[in-house]
Design a protein around this nucleic acid. Structure first.
Lengths: 424, 424
DNA sequence: ATACATACC
DNA sequence: TACTGGTATGTAT
DNA sequence: ATACATACC
DNA sequence: TACTGGTATGTAT
C-alpha cells in the first residue's frame, strides 16, 4: 500500500521531464514514512485494496454467459451513443500555466529563474518551472519540497492578485464565447463553433489568437486544448503545456485514435482511487476501457459505468449545460476549516468552533444565503477525519445559532476524540 | 377531494359501457361517506391537492425565458430519442379476459350469465361481464358491489386453479417466444419479430393464432395488443377487450396518431395521483404531454420526466430486458399481512405478529432465502398506515429472530397506536 | 437506512 | 358488519 | 438525512 | 517542526 503513496508526486507532469523520479520517490518516502499522515494514508490504501479485492471476487463469480449478455446490451448502448454523437461543437479548454507562480513572477521577474513555490512549509499550491526540475510540484508539502530543493523560495499566496489577473483573462474569453464557463481562477471552457464560423477561422487559429491575446493583456501564458467535447478539450490543454495547444479533429476516428492509448488517469474525474481500481482489472488506457466495457458495466454502478463508457468512446460533454438566461452559479455549500497544533483542550476547541461559525455566518450574510444544515468536521492528530451533521428547524445565517449547533455536535463526540488538528 | 374518490369506480373499463355512471357514483358515495376509510382517503387526497398546489406555485414562478431554455434542451433530447427510435421489435401484450372469474365459469358454466364476482363482502378481485353491467368491478368492496347488484354471487378465489390455467397459457406463449415475460398470472409480454419472420406471418395474424391457441388449450379468451414497444402493446391489449386485439403499425406516424388523443391514465405506471397531478396542468392525453414537455421537465423529477417524455413520444420498452441465460426472477421482498377486527389488545397483536413471522420465515426457507431487514406494517382502525423497519446484524430466515425484531418494533410504537386492524 | 406513497394485479 | 394481499418502485429525509 | 470518500484546483 | 482549504459529487446506509 505504500508504493502508491510515495508515487503520488512522481507522475509525469509538465515540467517534470528531466526529473530523477527514483530519487524523488525515495525522498518523499523518507520524509513521510514515520509520520501519522503516512500511517493514515496507508490505512486508507488498505481499505481501497480491500474494496478492489471484493470487486475481483465479484468479477470472478460472473459467468461468461452473463458477461456475454451484458456485452450485447453494452454494445447496443454504445451503438446508440455513437449514433447520436455530436461532433459539431468546438470546445476549447484554456488553462493558465502555473498560474499562481506566474502571477508572482510577473511582479518579481527575478523569481522566474530561481526555484519558487507558492505556499509554505506545510503545503505548496504551485511551483514554477525552475522548481519543477527538482521534482517539486503542487499539492506537495513544503518541507518535502525543501528537501528536494534546498534553495527553494516560498512565496505567500495572494488571492486578490490572482483574481485580478483572472478577471483580465475572462475579459478575453468573453470575446470568443460570451457564455464561457470558468471552473476556477486559472481555467475556462469556451464553445467557439459560432466564433469560428463568424470569422471563417479554423479552431486552431482561434486558439492561437486567444492565447496571443491573453498573453498581450496579462503577460501570462496559457495552454489550450481544442476538441468536440469538454472532456477531450481538457485532456488536450494538458498535452502541450506550457504555452502550447493541441487540437483533436472532430471525427470519430481522430477521437478513437487519441483515446486508444490515453491513460485513464488523464481524464478529469479519474483520480488516484479509480485509476488503481481500473488498473487492478488490467485497464490503464481508454482503449483498455473500451475493450473491457462489459466488465466495467458489470462491476461499477450505473453512474460510474455511464461515465466510463462515455470516456471510452469519447462521448459526453458536447452540449453547453442548459441554463436559463441570467442564471448565476448556485452555491451548494459554504465552509471554513482551519488546521492548528493538535490539542485536546475542549475550551480552546469550542472557541475555534465559535470563530469558524462566525466566519461562515459572515459568508452567508455576504451572499444573502441561509442554511438549514450544519456540518462539523474534525480531523484528529492522527489525521482521522470525522464529520457530524445536523438539520436546523429553520434556515438561518445567525452565527450564534450555527455555533450552538456545531457545539452540540462537538459535545456529542467528546468521548471519542483525542486531540484535534483541524476543525471546520 | 371527495369527487376523485367516488369517481374511482366509474372510469371507463371493458364491459362497463351501458352503466349508469351517475347512479354508481351515488351508491359508492353513500355507502362510503360515513366510514373511517372515506375519512382517510379524503385526507390523503387533501395531501395530494396540497402537493399539486405547491407545484402550481413553482410553475407560476418559472420565468418564460427559463422555460424556453428547458424547452430547447428537451427538444434536443426528444430529437435524440426519436433518432435512435427502434421500430423493429414486435411486442405482444396478452391479457386474459376477467381471468379469475372466467376460470370459475369454466368449471361452473351456470355462472356465466349470472352476475358473479371473485372475492367477498370486503373486497372483490374480478367480476364477470354480467356483473360489470351493474357497475361492479375489480378492487371494489363486496358490500358496495352487492348494493349495486343485490343478486351478485360471490365465489371464493382459488389460486391453485388460476395457477393451473396460467401454466396452460404459458405453454402456448412459449411457442411464440421462449423468453416471454409473465408479469402476473393473467398476462404476458412476447416479442414476436423472430417468429413473424420465421413463419412469414403478419403480427396481426400471429396474435390471432396465439389467441386461438390459448382458447383451444384453455377454453378461456384473452385479448392482445401488438406494438413496437411493451408500453404501447399493453395499451392496445386493453382497447378491444374482451376477446379482441389491436395492432399499431410500427411507424412513427401510427404511434403519434394513437398517442395524440390517448388519455395518460391508460398508460401503465400512470395511476390516480399522477393522472390528477397532470390534469391540474391541463394534461389529459399523451398529446397534451408532448405539447407541455417543457413544463413537465421543469416540474417533475428526472426519473418521472424521463418516463413521461418516453410516454409522450411512444419511446421506451423496445428492448428485451437484458438477462443472462438461466436467469431467474430475483425476489426483492417477501411479506405477509392480515386484516382483522380492530383491537388494541397488545397480547393478541403480539401473537399475530409471531404468526406472521412464522409464515414469512417459512416462505424464506421455501425459497432458500435470507433477509437482513424486517419491516412491521401496522394499519390502525382509522386506516392510518405506519411502517417500522430494522436491519438485522446478520441475514436470517429464523422465525424467532424475525418475530423478535418485529416485536421490538411493535413495542417501540406502543404509545401511539390505538387499535389496529392490520399487521404485516 | 428509514418512512411512506404510488402503482399494478 | 363490511375497503385485501403481495410485490416493486419512487420520493424524501 | 447522515457519514464518509473521492476528485479537482 | 512541518501533509491546506474550499467546493462538488458519489456511495452507502
Amino acid at each position: 500500500p505504500t508504493s502508491a503513496f510515495t508515487n503520488a508526486f512522481t507522475n509525469a507532469k509538465a515540467g517534470m521531464e528531466g526529473v530523477d523520479r527514483e530519487m524523488v520517490k525515495r525522498v518523499v518516502h523518507d520524509m513521510s514514512v514515520n509520520s501519522a499522515h503516512f500511517a493514515t494514508e496507508s490505512r486508507k490504501e488498505a481499505a481501497v485494496e480491500a474494496k478492489i479485492l471484493a470487486m475481483k471476487k465479484r468479477a470472478a463469480s460472473i459467468r461468461p454467459s452473463a458477461l456475454a449478455t451484458i456485452k450485447a446490451a453494452v454494445d447496443d448502448r454504445v451503438a446508440r451513443m455513437e449514433a447520436s454523437r455530436d461532433l459539431t461543437k468546438t470546445w476549447v479548454h484554456v488553462d493558465m500555466d502555473s498560474f499562481f507562480a506566474s502571477v508572482h513572477i510577473l511582479e518579481r521577474p527575478e523569481l522566474r529563474d530561481v526555484p519558487m513555490a507558492v505556499g509554505g512549509m506545510s503545503m505548496i499550491s504551485t511551483a514554477n518551472y525552475a522548481a519543477r526540475k527538482f521534482g517539486v510540484r503542487s499539492a506537495m508539502p513544503g518541507f518535502i519540497a525543501k528537501k528536494l530543493c534546498p534553495q527553494l523560495v516560498f512565496v505567500d499566496s495572494d488571492f486578490a492578485k490572482y483574481k485580478h489577473y483572472a478577471s483580465l483573462t475572462r475579459e478575453v474569453f468573453k470575446e470568443y464565447d460570451p457564455q464561457f464557463d470558468a471552473g476556477s481562477l486559472d481555467e475556462a471552457y469556451l464553445e467557439i463553433s459560432a466564433y469560428c464560423a463568424g470569422k471563417s477561422m479554423t479552431p486552431a487559429d482561434v486558439a492561437e489568437a486567444l492565447r496571443r491575446e491573453v498573453r498581450e493583456k496579462t503577460k501570462l501564458t496559457c495552454s489550450a486544448g481544442v476538441a468536440p467535447t469538454r472532456r477531450l478539450a481538457k485532456v488536450c490543454s494538458d498535452a502541450n503545456k506550457p504555452d502550447g495547444q493541441m487540437v483533436i479533429e472532430p471525427t470519430r476516428d481522430a477521437v478513437a485514435a487519441l483515446l486508444s492509448s490515453l491513460p485513464v488517469r488523464k481524464i478529469g474525474g479519474v483520480g488516484k482511487v479509480l485509476d488503481r481500481t481500473l488498473a487492478a482489472f488490467g485497464i490503464a488506457t481508454c482503449g483498455d476501457l473500451l475493450r473491457e466495457r462489459a466488465l466495467v458495466v458489470a462491476l461499477f454502478s450505473e453512474v460510474q459505468s455511464d461515465f466510463l463508457l462515455g470516456v471510452a468512446i469519447g462521448v459526453g460533454g458536447e452540449a453547453r449545460p442548459a441554463r436559463p438566461p441570467g442564471w448565476a452559479p448556485q452555491r451548494k455549500s459554504l465552509s471554513q476549516e482551519r488546521t492548528f497544533a493538535p490539542t485536546a483542550d475542549a475550551r480552546a476547541l469550542a472557541a475555534k468552533i465559535a470563530a469558524l461559525a462566525e466566519e461562515v455566518a459572515a459568508g452567508l450574510a455576504r451572499e444573502n444565503l441561509l442554511t438549514r444544515t450544519v456540518t462539523l468536521k474534525m480531523k484528529r492528530a492522527d489525521f482521522e477525519v470525522a464529520q457530524r451533521q445536523t438539520s436546523l428547524p429553520r434556515p438561518t445565517n445567525d452565527a450564534q445559532t450555527i455555533s450552538d449547533a456545531a457545539l452540540r455536535l462537538f459535545r456529542g463526540e467528546k468521548n471519542t476524540h483525542g486531540s484535534l488538528r483541524l476543525l471546520g
